[in-house]
Design a protein around this nucleic acid. Structure first.
Lengths: 337, 337
DNA sequence: TTTATTTACGAAACCGTATTCGCTATAAAT
DNA sequence: ATTTATAGCGAATACGGTTTCGTAAATAAA
């Protein structure tokens, strides 16, 4: 049951290697009868082509790279499903690379991609990424790249995002309508565009509703769960503690709830909470969580579709363009009863 | 900024291709001075080696394949992190392939691996997998493979699992001690070994505590979320409805909670619930969820470590062997107050 | 001084597949 | 009958690295 190569397959068939290769690739040069024979024998001898040889010769890998900060996250894992659904249809493989929110990892991964490992890239940048030369370099090198969710504004390519400003605005307005007047905003990065857009939406809503901005309500979280928990706890322990919280990212949900519980704060009575989150369990939390639900699967799917358009049409190139798929505010128990 | 190959690099350096290759691979044949020059020029010209050329020539891909049913699942995404932590250290890449619980997908993926795409495989089989020839074939072909979590019993290789029988037993005993006498067990597959071992642990506990087994309390769920919800709802609507539920897999958590809420059943008063789950949000559910928490990261890490031992030592081969890492019963609000 | 060994490098073969180009035999067109 | 076109196949080359083997010069051993 050892694996055979095309040469041995050709030998068995009394055909040349080139004929077999063409038959396997359904070339018009080969007769139907021969194709049938080749396919039949290939199946019988359990022939599986070596993808590296094909990639080397064909100068394309049939792989797309997906670079994301983290896989243990509902948004990203759902986005992967969206991406994969398209890739599979196109006969491509998905190479998932994790940066773990580290800029250095991100740069290393993209650098490696220059060697030809992938034909195109879908990228959601790390929270540390402030400067984008490593991305521009890759594009200049001829690799098509599409951002999804977390983009760099000064890179000339397409991005798929959600309406971060508007949805943060909606979330904030919702809290205000629920009588919150001291609303905290939990950010995960000072540089990330989505984080900043969400922050701006929050600020705009405060302004529109004539609520004064208080810097002590704007918390910049880190990538350390324990530290974030302490930060949030501290926020909720000050004398003018907030009566509303917007968490700009899913992973802050648990520390926020934990902090409220530790401090015996009742949600939504004492504090109301909205999270940007795709958690399936949002509906069964204690209390159920009001969320901004992002169209994760759709975003992944759209990003992949766009990337493949660039891969398939050599005369179609990715221009700087925004595709915005709206999020949904789902009101649940953490902001009402 | 176009990518260059080793030939052009050699030309620039006035060296032969072989010398450059050896220098890049830190061969003892090359002087320190030359290595320095090569490395410096390679960096300056932004040389990135083509991985497919290396793989083809070296007959190894520096990739390991991870085949799992689903990525949008806490257990698997944490396991991926464990696997990746080892792979990264060894300079390997992780190729994540999703079966979406389909046997056909699983077979196709493993078949492709025979072409040499990966040097080794970590596999958690789909819920549909009852027959394992596609796996044995792969191993017979020379590819080392380690199971993690979901294994096939009749394949000659190592497996990393958790103590499914014992933890299901513990969960059941815990429910009994909390005065449950009508305990339902939610399975996801009739063939999956983990599902069956958990079922056996449940049955053994019932037997040891002299509780009669009632087949109507053993529910075989499907892969369809909506259908599972209806199934569970039906379970909870019968006249002798259970007062305890064990969900053998994380994804059943939400439908169970939803069904209880829809039927106005109080947890834990009317029904007590235990889930096999790695959900980070278990502690903040309504009520907080008693879980069997699997050592997901550890299992991934151990499986990867074992696989690499087989990859690195040609005289070490994977024998049929069980490595069992225990799960933890974490008692929370869904089974007590 | 002669011989053996070591150091540092280059030429060429090789990994498995795809593609270009050329060839033959047959069919079609003139 | 002659030319042209076409269908079907094979030889050879290319893809970009790695590795084997050979060799010249430098050094060590005799």
């Amino acid at each position: 049951m050892k694996n055979i190569n095309i040469r041995e397959l050709a030998l068995e068939l009394n055909l040349s290697v080139s004929t077999v290769s063409k038959a396997l690739n359904d070339s018009y040069e080969i007769s139907e009868e021969t194709k049938r024979r080749v396919l039949e024998t290939a199946a019988r001898l359990n022939y599986v082509p070596n993808p590296y040889a094909s990639s080397l010769r064909g100068r394309k890998s049939k792989n797309i790279g997906v670079v994301i900060p983290e896989v243990a996250d509902s948004f990203f894992s759902l986005a992967i499903n969206g991406i994969e659904s398209v890739a599979k249809e196109k006969g491509y493989h998905v190479l998932i690379c994790l940066t773990h929110e580290s800029f250095e990892n991100e740069r290393t991964i993209l650098k490696e991609f220059q060697g030809g490992r992938v034909d195109g890239v879908l990228l959601s940048v790390s929270r540390e990424t402030t400067q984008c030369n490593h991305i521009s370099d890759l594009i200049a090198n001829g690799l098509p790249l599409v951002f999804f969710d977390r983009a760099c504004d000064n890179v000339e390519t397409a991005k798929i995002t959600t309406d971060d400003f508007e949805s943060a605005y909606k979330a904030t307005a919702h809290l205000i309508q629920q009588n919150c007047d001291q609303i905290a905003f939990l950010s995960i990065s000072k540089s990330l565009s989505i984080s900043n857009k969400r922050l701006e939406g929050y600020l705009q809503a405060l302004s529109d509703y004539q609520i004064k901005v208080d810097q002590k309500y704007i918390i910049h979280c880190s990538n350390d769960a324990e530290q974030n928990y302490l930060l949030i706890k501290k926020l909720l322990q000050q004398k003018n503690k907030p009566n509303g919280i917007i968490a700009s990212v899913e992973k802050l949900t648990t520390p926020v709830y934990m902090a409220c519980e530790a401090l015996k704060l009742k949600v939504p009575k004492d504090v109301k909470i909205v999270c940007f989150s795709n958690l399936e369990t949002a509906a069964i939390l204690n209390p159920s969580l009001t969320t901004i639900t992002q169209p994760a699967f759709e975003m992944g799917k759209t990003a992949a579709t766009l990337l493949f358009r660039a891969l398939e049409n050599r005369n179609f190139s990715l221009i700087k363009e925004d595709f915005i798929i709206p999020s949904t505010l789902v009101v649940r128990g953490s902001t009402s009863h």
